[in-house]
Nucleic acid binder design. Structure first.
Length: 188
DNA sequence: TATTCCTGTCCTG
DNA sequence: CAGGACAGGAATA
């Protein structure tokens, strides 16, 4: 039995200079999604099948932050889920993708690819002004922390092969098929 | 066709 | 700190 305390000390209190990140786990058409939100916006969208594996992934990416799981998650989480389910929707929420300058340049280039369209690693390398860094571009794309909203699934190999996907090739295929289906335009 | 090199970042020893 | 591995791709042998 619990006595009525005037104030309960939370299990975790942010230390000085420590960042707080709220996140929520939600089911979606791609499986399980973990959406994490910082003060600046959505800082991670991770896809998978196992909740604990996703939490671990988040922990690995934000080692120094205080991570708080919310049952609900709030408006940004809802917006993120809606965006996942509807690829042609405008990404209307702020994205707080963290990485090196090179990675941020790559991710910015990705966001310029419209839904239903694809490009190649080499093209991205050209567009950011490092035409010979195609391999490094692949690594940078693989490190993208914000799935779907930063559309790394729209990058294929120059020879047309699907190439890889951090969250599983099936999800990449599913996203591309969905976007293609939503295109009312000419196909050929 | 099979190597080799280029490039940025992370992981390991 | 050195070396290897990566969601690539062009050049060279």
């Amino acid at each position: 039995m619990k006595t009525h305390s005037p104030h309960v000390t939370p299990p975790e209190v942010p230390m000085r200079g420590e960042e707080t990140i709220h996140y929520a786990l939600r089911r979606c058409s791609l499986g399980l999604a973990l959406i994490a939100v910082s003060e600046k916006g959505v800082c991670a969208i991770l896809l998978g099948d196992d909740a604990e594996a996703l939490r671990e992934d988040l922990r690995r990416r934000f080692k120094k932050a205080l991570l708080i799981e919310d049952a609900d998650g709030g408006a940004l989480v809802g917006a993120a889920i809606a965006m996942i389910e509807t690829p042609d929707i405008h990404v209307g929420f702020p994205i707080d993708a963290r990485g090196t300058d090179f990675q941020k340049r790559v991710w910015t280039a990705l966001r310029a690819i419209p839904p239903g369209q694809t490009t190649s690693y080499a093209e991205i390398a050209r567009r950011i002004g490092s035409p010979k860094a195609t391999r490094a571009v692949g690594s940078a794309i693989a490190a993208n922390p914000v799935a779907v909203a930063v559309p790394c699934h729209r990058v294929l190999r120059s020879d047309g092969a699907l190439s890889g996907y951090h969250w599983g090739a099936d999800r990449k295929r599913a996203l591309l098929a969905r976007e293609k289906a939503l295109l009312p335009r000419h196909v050929a």
